[in-house]
Design a protein around this nucleic acid. Structure first.
Lengths: 337, 337
DNA sequence: CTGTTAGCGCATTCAA
DNA sequence: TTGAATGCGCTAACAG
């Protein structure tokens, strides 16, 4: 492997001079600089970032830990983070926890030994607290993305889940629905709790009593066999609309509704949180859309500020707005717009 | 930061003994081992992989370079690669070239300085050759994924593009279509060339003359404004079916067809290469499906064998089968099944 | 403007 | 079974 010493020897200078040329530090004569640069070219020199990292105590690597790489929301977050990191001179080490605490722990260990400069962390659940404390104990800055973790203070970038949920439900109410079900993600995830709160708010604001039978807790990733849906349909007074906790729940829901011959929106309105790729093909779902790309971008920005110390000590809390997009999966009960 | 020296001091042994305990090398008494391990726990010791890498000359990091992280095909490849890498004790550094040679070059430089142990490379185009030669010059093993690059010999994992395309087109022919258009990706990408070859094969096998007017070259990522489609529709004898080069082209195509009031499959059949997430919601597209997860998995396996030298010198060429899945976007001309 | 010294944290080699 | 010496490739701090 070509090292700065190989370059130095060929250029008749010291290794230190080469290092200075590489890093643009110190004073170097133009002539020396040009010569060194030329020889670096000739010899295909590439700095060894491990050696450098050992000295400088930084890797210029950020880690992005997301719960589900197949979900377009998180894919878009990743794109935003990647672009921002690249721009700021950082590499991105991806991790996919699959909503699993065990996998998340493996990644935390990896992150620790890799000595990444910081972590963008979208927690698998409330139980992720210990993982974050491990990071903190080791002095690794992190920014919480999308999901808050109780008992953990830090910089955060999150969406306005409560407000978004409220908008979605009030949209349904405005259409004339009174029996509105919520099929939610696990309440061990902060976003699910906030969406539930928004749901309740909307009902209260419109004097609709809360019916616990209409509120289901599932998870964001797998919809299951439809048993939960059947329970809703068997109620004496079944819902005329469903608010799905996220995009994947909505997808599962639609599929099960189709299997049962229930039309959307004629027989049942369905709305959800987060965009679906499907909407490219067929603008169908009424959703609350979050600026996923910006989640990643802002997260990286906050993280790098924290790493470099170019920010004030208090934690920054960024809340990104969510936007109601009405499409054709919601209609008045009975299917009339 | 806690180092092996801190552990050594507290355990009244030498740093070397600690190192041996960590790596399970050499002979260590059970008593010493237990004591060292306990103190490592107490002090929250985590090995510094940079320091280790500097000595061992390996990082245990693989890099995965894909052209489009938003395409579910590549997302699934990533999942397969991630799982396999994890299993084999490697980390995965993702890169997203966005089908851009410039971005790809940036990633190659990054990969070089990070001293990753190997690269899974899905080339942006035929022009990626120099990037691969750079990797080879630096002695970094790589496996080509999905796309071959002319003039570059290496291990590869690819799909059976020609055969897949043939199956898709013969399916259309069997339905009664004779005017079949191909809206393809850039011919600077090997998969597009092979899909074209399969298209031609199918026509020839069925004595249908090739009409160059029916063959369009676009790209895999952006469908554009529909001008290309209009050109097809304005032909004296327009196509009754379109074979889209990949999933995103199919999506764009469908959208533009809808805008023009052309129904699928009644007025126009559309089939494509690669699955779409949409199919979860609504099994609609007739596709040739490739085992994306296995692309990643097999790629990592080949790569690690190459890195460890546990394979024979000749290049391994793995071709994964593609499967025709008939759904409702294809029908006989006029729309009758 | 340029070079010398020292050390980042670890594993390999060899000696005890 | 354990440990001392050495160096991986680089840069910070200082000296010339």
């Amino acid at each position: 492997m070509v090292t700065i010493y190989d370059i130095a020897k060929k250029a008749n200078v010291s290794a230190m001079t080469v290092s200075k040329v590489i890093n643009n530090t110190g004073k170097i004569s133009d002539k020396t600089r040009a010569k060194v640069k030329q020889i670096m070219e000739e010899m295909n020199y590439v700095p060894n970032s491990m050696a450098r990292g050992l000295v400088t105590q930084e890797t210029k690597i950020l880690s992005l830990l997301i719960p589900d790489i197949t979900n377009p929301f998180f894919t878009t977050v990743a794109r935003g983070a990647e672009d921002a990191a690249m721009r700021l001179g950082y590499k991105l080490l991806f991790g996919n926890s699959d909503e699993s605490l065990a996998k998340e722990k493996e990644y935390v260990d990896m992150v620790l030994s890799t000595r990444v400069d910081g972590v963008l962390f979208s927690a698998a659940s409330d139980e992720s607290g210990p993982h974050l404390q491990t990071l903190r104990r080791h002095g690794i800055p992190f920014v919480l993305l999308d999901r808050e973790v109780p008992g953990v203070e830090s910089d955060t970038v999150s969406g306005d889940n409560k407000e978004g949920a409220r908008k979605l439900v009030e949209h349904l109410i405005a259409l004339g629905h009174r029996r509105i079900a919520l099929v939610n993600g696990s309440l061990a995830v902060s976003t699910a709790r906030e969406r539930l709160a928004g749901y309740k708010d909307a009902l209260k604001l419109n004097d609709i009593p809360l019916d616990e039978n209409l509120v289901l807790e599932m998870n964001y990733k797998y919809f299951g066999d439809g048993e939960a849906l059947d329970k809703l349909l068997r109620l004496d007074s079944p819902p005329t609309a469903v608010f799905a906790g996220n995009n994947f729940i909505a997808l599962g829901l639609i599929r099960k509704l189709r299997e049962r011959g229930i039309r959307v929106p004629e027989d049942m309105s369905v709305v959800c949180f987060d965009e679906l790729d499907v909407s490219v093909l067929d603008p169908f779902f009424t959703v609350v859309s979050q600026p996923a790309y910006q989640f990643g971008e802002m997260g990286v920005r906050l993280l790098v500020e924290r790493i470099k110390g170019t920010t004030t000590p208090e934690w920054k809390k960024i809340m990104l707005p969510s936007e109601l997009i009405v499409r054709s999966s919601s209609a008045a009960p009975g299917g009339n717009k």
